[in-house]
Amino acid sequence: MNQSLTRTLGMRTILVLVFAFLYIPIAVLVALSFNEGGLPTAWSGFSLKWYASLAGNSAILSAALNTLIVALVSTAIATLLGTLLAIGVEMRRQYGKGLEALIFAPMIIPDIVLAIALLSFFSMLNLTMGLHTIILAHVVFNLAFVCSVVRARLKSFDWSIVEASADLGASAVTTFRRVTLPVIAPAVIAGALLAFTLSVDEFIIAFFTAGAGRASTTLPMQIYAMIRFGITPEINALATIVMAVSITALTLSQRLNRGIIGQ
């Protein structure tokens, strides 16, 4: 009785400490974003003025727009290509080692290495860099993540239902549209959301492939520049908004995914 009580207490202490470690830094940031004085030294009253000043910051607004463009376009391309790749690999079931490495590599290659590789490549081709080169680069790793999420679903896919559909007279296209796609749809959506989130947050590769000039600055690049400059209350507000958005997106995708599976 006593033994299990101390055990339970110990477990609770660990959980409290770990969650404190995970959430206190974020919580401090959020709290400071509402601090009138904006500094950690003293609480001088609740205020939304730092959010208001963000709304008037055109550099941040244009960076946010750039990020949205990059994320949407690269997610769309990556979802299409990644899903097709996953189906192709899983249907043939010829898992070559080289193929596996090719698909797996973008997920583990250090982003600084991919970043300099693409920088060298684009500059050697004399390509003018901008949002389009960031998109090209983001599709590389997004495609790999979408593919792995969809493949995980396809591993448990019963391919005999495809044969059953053909047996019942459906064409290959109809079978894909009415049988295969509905089954893998939750995984495709989950993969797309993952890709979108990764793209929105990605900093280093965008930084190297954005080219000169401020026109193609993305939000993470803007945040990095601001952080290097020092602590400003504006970053706290921006950070709070970015976190709120990505956490909401994740919560939604979890609900959505579960809802579809539950049907």
Partner: peptide, 21 residues
């Protein structure tokens, strides 16, 4: 879910939080 949640917020921001601390 709550243990993994911070992982989904921006890496730069999570790092910045430690500058503030």
């Amino acid at each position: 879910f709550f243990a993994v949640l911070p992982f989904w917020s921006n890496y730069l921001i999570r790092t910045y939080a430690w500058i503030v601390l």
